[in-house]
Design a binder for these strands. Structure first.
Length: 258
DNA sequence: ATGGTGGTTGCACCA
């Protein structure tokens, strides 16, 4: 089985790229983030004719997550919606959707960005990760994959120049500690061994020719429970998908399972 | 600085 995750930065504006990605890599399950679409807005006809089912959640204009699968979608669950203090529609943000696909529990995650280290959203980000970790501890003994845009660069080599991130989110000790917590609980980054750095990224800003100069960040990850990780036979980052006109600012990450 | 979205069809807000 082949599983992939991609922050698509609008599913509607990139539906053609999604369909070509599925065909090009023969992907069985695709987790998407930043779909920026309500359930009733999704153009599913092409995907359905290709044999895929879709489960999605998302209500605000900048968020939304989905799972696309041709090996079944069972027991769909939406969780970790948003900052409790927020009013509508932000409180209805869907930042995670989980489904069992081909016997594997897949969670498509869009971890809060945090914005600035002194912003309330940064506290929300850490709290959100704490809540996710507590839930993930209960999924560890099943084949579970926590995939998506983690908005954390766990290592200095995961950003193009750490000296430019001294006051930035994504690289702070508490964020990295939160990420490490999942590893401590038995989840493993199943992609890094197959795509080691430095200079290997999953995200490049649109501006300043960041992609052309390979000034990116590795912030999209597939964390697998032990019974998931032991089935991983390979993985790669589809850097080419980031190239050219009309690309998302993130590249897809692909994992193969036995 | 670039790009997507919804709406105030200009512009604010998000990444």
């Amino acid at each position: 089985m082949r599983l992939a995750t991609w922050n698509v930065n609008s599913l509607r504006s990139r539906i053609d790229r999604v369909e070509k990605l599925l065909e090009r890599h023969e992907i069985d399950v695709l987790a998407l983030q930043e779909t920026k679409a309500r359930v009733d807005q999704l153009p599913l006809m092409g995907l359905e004719s290709m044999g895929y089912e879709v489960a999605s959640a998302g209500f605000s204009q900048w968020n939304g997550v989905a799972i696309i699968s041709r090996v079944g979608i069972e027991d769909v669950e939406v969780g970790f919606e948003g900052m409790p203090e927020w009013g509508e529609p932000q409180a209805a943000e869907a930042r995670a959707i989980g489904a069992t696909c081909g016997g594997v529990r897949v969670w498509s995650l869009y971890v809060p960005n945090g914005r600035k280290v002194d912003d309330p959203h940064f506290v929300y980000k850490l709290d959100w990760l704490t809540r996710l970790r507590a839930a993930a501890q209960g999924w560890r003994d099943q084949p579970t994959a926590l995939v998506g845009d983690w908005n954390i660069a766990p290592q200095d080599d995961d950003v193009f120049d750490i000296s430019q991130f001294r006051t930035s989110t994504h690289v702070t000790p508490p964020e990295r500690a939160a990420f490490q917590g999942f590893l401590d609980d038995g989840y493993a980054d199943v992609v890094r061994p197959h795509a080691p750095g430095p200079g290997v990224y999953t995200y490049w800003d649109y501006y300043r020719q960041r992609f052309e100069r390979n000034r990116g960040m590795r912030i999209d990850f597939v964390l697998g429970s032990p019974s998931f990780a032991e089935r991983v036979t390979g993985a790669f980052i589809d850097t080419e998908e980031r190239a050219g006109q009309g690309a998302s600012d993130h590249a897809p990450v692909v994992v193969d399972l036995s």
